[in-house]
Amino acid sequence: MATFRRQVTTLAVAHALSAAERGLAVLPLSRTKLPALRSPHRTDPAQPPCRGECGRPGHGVHDASTDPARIRALFAAAPWATGYGIACGLPPHHLVGVDLDTKPGTDAPAALRALGLRFRFAIPETVVVLTPSGGRHLWLTAPPDTVVPNSASRLAPGIDIRGAGGYLVGPGSRTAHGVYVTAPGTARLRPAPCPRNLLRLLVPPPRPPRRRPRPSPAFPGDGQGLLHFVLTAHEGQRNTRLFWAACRAHESGLGPALTVPLLEAALAT
């Protein structure tokens, strides 16, 4: 059994080094598909968790590397590793993984085809990895300036997305459920660019710009005018206008009611 485990780990290292030669950053995984190395901060409450800045291994996807020496060191620290993960979102490929699951009651491939018909995109020829459970991982790439987040069943049931901060189980990895293999005819391919219309579905829309608060209608007359006076202040006028408006508010008896709205107006500028 010990000999078989060493052979499995040796094979995982070989596959990981091969992926690294293609520019894919890798890290060792256990049979459970989780990072094989545990956090070095788990028993040190005085040391806050980090993303590898401490220099020690055990930071999950942040351990991923394309450096052969670093990869061998990671696997040497985790001799029980049986597979490897490929970090997504990193240069030069900026990999995006489309994970089509096979959970009971779901048909992820059909759901992806339906999305393609609805939003007018087609998945190009690309690397496809077959999972032991019967699912498949589609490897795509994103533009360098685009950050694709991870998601689970957001597009449709059974379709998970692996983006920045996530990883894909690499082909050749052995897990508790079996071995991940590259689909026939796709190992020679390079990851294809993600179709533009699909990419739009994967990237969350930008947040709307923050609007300046409008003067409250609860303060008629001088109240609204004072708020407007502060809201329209330009650089170099803001402190003076706020002081002047605050003085006028208190002189007119509106001071207690306008204190908070004037402060909010000043902060908004």
Rank of each mutant, 00 (worst) to 15 (best):
A2K: 10
F4M: 12
R5Y: 09
Q7S: 04
V8G: 09
T9Y: 03
L11Q: 11
A12I: 01
A14L: 07
A19D: 02
A19R: 03
A19S: 03
A20Y: 02
G23N: 08
A25P: 02
K33M: 05
L34W: 12
P35S: 08
P35D: 05
H41G: 03
T43I: 10
T43M: 12
T43P: 01
A46W: 09
P49M: 05
P49K: 01
R51G: 07
E53T: 08
E53W: 07
C54I: 10
R56D: 08
H59S: 08
V61P: 12
V61C: 10
H62M: 02
H62Y: 11
A64M: 03
S65C: 07
P68E: 07
A69D: 14
R72F: 06
F75N: 03
A76C: 05
A77R: 15
A78Y: 05
Y84K: 04
A87W: 03
L90I: 09
L90N: 08
P91A: 15
P92K: 00
L100G: 02
D101H: 14
T106M: 02
P109N: 11
L112R: 12
L117R: 15
R118V: 13
R118P: 04
F119Y: 15
I123W: 01
T126W: 00
T126C: 00
V127K: 10
V127C: 04
V127S: 04
T131C: 00
G134S: 02
R136L: 06
H137K: 06
T141C: 15
P144K: 08
T146P: 07
T146S: 12
V147R: 15
V148C: 05
N150C: 13
S151W: 14
S151C: 04
S153N: 11
S153D: 12
R154D: 12
G158R: 09
I161W: 01
L168S: 11
V169W: 07
G170R: 00
G170K: 00
P171D: 13
V179E: 10
T182L: 05
G185R: 06
R188H: 13
L189P: 04
P191I: 11
L201P: 01
L202C: 09
R207G: 14
P209W: 02
P209F: 04
P209K: 06
R210I: 14
R211K: 12
R211E: 15
P213D: 03
P215A: 09
P217Q: 02
V230Q: 00
R241L: 00
F243T: 15
F243D: 10
A249R: 12
H250V: 06
E251N: 05
G253S: 03
G253D: 00
P256D: 09
L258H: 02
V260Y: 12
P261A: 04
L263G: 14
L263I: 13
A266W: 10
A268C: 09
